[in-house]
Every structure is written in C-alpha cells, then in structure tokens.
C-alpha cells in the first residue's frame, strides 16, 4: 500500500507561514493499493487537492468519524461531481440516523449549496465494527476511544498492515496507562501493524488540561506504540496551535521516549510504503 499524507492537522485547518512543513490541512490520507484501488482515509480539508490522476473510476473514502475536521473536504472533492467516478463513503454507524442522513446535515443549505441527494454517483455505507473487504484490501473497523462514535481502521493487503487511529485517547480508558492489552482501546486495530498513523496532538502538559477530549499526549502515544508493537509510527492530527518549530520539539521528545517503533514525522506530503 503506497500511502501519502494530504492533511495532518487536527481540529481545524491552520494555514500560514508557521505551519508550512507539517501542513495546515486537516485529515486526509491517500492509500493506493497493490490491487489498484484508491482508498482515502478521512475527508478533511486535505482531501480537496488529492490527485486522482491514474486512479480507477472508483474511490473509497473511509471516515473515522464525522467531526468537521474529518468531513469538511468532502464537498470539495472533485470526483463527487464527476459522473465518471463512483465514490463510496464509509463511516461509523449511528443508533439514530444513517451516515447519509448525518452527512446531509452538513451537505445541504444553508451550510452548503449542493445536497447529497444530487450526488448520484456517491454511495454511503454505515460501518458496523468488524470486517469488510474493498477489492484486495481487508478492512477491520473497531470503535475507539474518542467522543462520539469513532472508528479506527486496520487495512491489510498481502500481509501488510496499516493501522489508522487519527483521533484516539487510549489513556482515557484506564486509571493507570497502559492497562492490560484487553482493556486498551484500539489495541486490536494497532497490534503489530507495519505502519500506524496515530493521533499525536498534545505534549504532556497540554494533555493534563484536556483529558477526555479524545486525543493523545506524546507519552501516551509512545507507550501505545510500544505495547502494540508497531514497526513504524506516523504522527498525525497535530494541534492547530502548534507551529512547525513546536512540532519539531515535540517530535524530538517523541523520538527520545519511543522504544521500538520508528517515528515518521507526519508532514503533509509524506509518502511511504506499507
């Protein structure tokens, strides 16, 4: 799976001279599979510039959850308005409304001029925790610790594993972190992944005043990566208040405390093979 980060910022887009290297767009990750599919993880503002040249006529977008920073790019993704494309949007199931109905609240006037019902080439799938397949890719989805219904994804193709947990607070689920494996949110999604893309929003001091907000401190991230035995860790969902220099410092610290996993700095434009 050839993977490229198009948006790595959390919460809200943060453009400007101080966020050039890590990028200001919100969550969007392109995954080109060995089987020729184009999968995109989340639909933040980073989705808009995703290059679909050479892509098949089907695109699958896997939404972790429906917070604005993960869906705001959706209406601006050109395949939605191109009848040559078939777009499949996958997202967490709700007890009350379908994925289509929930996204329609955003994609309808007065918030947006185009209605979902006008998009005849878009198909919505309410994801139940468990497994489903997209072409050659085995997708495992499970709810993870973040406010509201939020999925982590585990993509497996030809034995290679990419884990995606963009918004995740594993420490919130235990009094003392780390807890036993079976009591750790996201454990099965991340377990022994070749690459894990994971929330890295806060430094340890920031986290203390944001417990329960659904995001990780770098110490918790390093611990989570260690107990799940991931090979490579890609940082993600950077705090919008963090400048490039702040993030350099944060990553220097993360590299110091990480044991086992190789840290890849989640900068927009970063590409890697899984």
């Amino acid at each position: 799976m050839k993977t490229r980060l198009w948006g790595t910022r959390g919460s809200i887009a943060a453009g400007g001279a101080n966020t050039i290297r890590y990028g200001g767009d919100t969550s969007a990750v392109e995954v080109r599979t060995a089987g020729g599919q184009l999968l995109i993880l989340d639909a933040g503002s980073g989705l808009r510039p995703v290059d679909t040249s050479g892509a098949p006529d089907r695109v699958d977008i896997l939404l972790s959850h429906l917070h604005m920073d993960h869906v705001q790019g959706l209406p601006f993704f050109h395949p939605l308005l191109d009848p040559e494309f078939e777009v499949h949007v996958w997202g967490p199931i709700s007890t009350t409304r379908t994925l289509r109905a929930r996204l329609s609240r955003y994609m309808s006037p007065p918030l947006f001029p185009v209605r979902v019902r006008d998009l005849e080439n878009v198909f919505f799938h309410d994801v139940v925790p468990g497994r489903f397949d997209i072409g050659s890719v085995e997708v495992h989805a499970d709810l993870i610790c973040h406010p509201g219904s939020t999925l982590g994804y585990r993509l497996i193709e030809e034995g290679r594993v990419l884990a995606y947990l963009p918004d995740h607070e594993p420490a919130f689920g235990s009094r003392v972190f780390p807890a036993a494996d079976e009591w750790t949110s996201g454990f099965e999604i991340a377990r022994e992944a070749h690459v894990m893309i994971h929330d890295a929003q806060y430094d340890d001091l920031e986290y203390q005043s944001r417990v329960g907000w659904g995001h990780s401190s770098i110490t918790h991230l390093a611990t989570f990566a260690q107990i799940t035995s991931v090979e490579r860790l890609v940082t993600f969902h950077h705090d919008p208040a963090h400048t490039d220099d702040d993030l350099d410092d944060l990553h220097d610290r993360l590299e110091e405390i990480s044991e086992g996993a190789v840290v890849l700095r989640g900068q927009t434009g970063l590409t890697f093979d899984v």
Partner: peptide, 19 residues
C-alpha cells in the same frame, strides 16, 4: 493474549473504577 474488549466496556470499566 485475551481479545480486546469493546471500547464501550473499556469506558464502562473506567467509569466503574471511579464509583
């Protein structure tokens, strides 16, 4: 290794541990 519990149970356990 035991299978991981669903996140709903993980969060309930967390709540219970404080009650």
């Amino acid at each position: 290794m035991s299978p991981q519990h669903p996140v709903e149970m993980i969060l309930l356990r967390q709540l219970a541990s404080y009650l």
